[in-house]
């Protein structure tokens, strides 16, 4: 399933998508021309909780990291690993995406079975 065009996102911009079959939103973030995607589910509390403070506001103020706006956890954009905060050492669940030849960001497969709604 195609979420948006890579060119819809500025470099360093993130956006959240409701994807059929997924319990959580999927965050797509563009960085150095590449697309990375994770579940919008902070690993701090059981079950994973939403991370934005407002629709699509997933980055910290400086735009350097994905952030959970519950308690300020910072995640590396390219690996999803928490580098500071209550889920230190844990990672966001990665969602495999690829860019099609028409420049669309596509979810590779509805891979994660625990995400099947």
């Amino acid at each position: 399933m195609e979420l948006c065009q890579l060119s819809d996102l500025q470099d360093g911009e993130a956006r959240g998508f409701c994807v059929p079959g997924f319990l959580h939103k999927v965050i797509v973030v563009r960085r150095h021309g590449q697309a990375f995607a994770y579940l919008d589910a902070c690993p701090h509390y059981t079950g994973g909780t939403p991370m934005a403070w407002k629709k699509d506001a997933y980055l910290n103020g400086e735009g350097t990291h994905l952030a959970c706006h519950s308690h300020g956890a910072l995640f590396d954009i390219e690996t999803g690993r928490c580098v500071l905060g209550p889920c230190l050492g844990q990672s966001l669940q990665d969602v495999p995406v690829h860019v099609t030849k028409h420049g669309g960001i596509e979810i590779a497969a509805l891979a994660s079975s625990e995400e099947e709604a």
């Binding site: 939403p50 991370m51 934005a52 403070w53 506001a57 103020g61 952030a67 959970c68 706006h69 519950s70 308690h71 300020g72």
Partner: peptide, 9 residues
């Protein structure tokens, strides 16, 4: 409770 840009609910 709501998330916030102040890193707290």
């Amino acid at each position: 409770y709501f998330n916030s840009p102040l890193g707290t609910h």
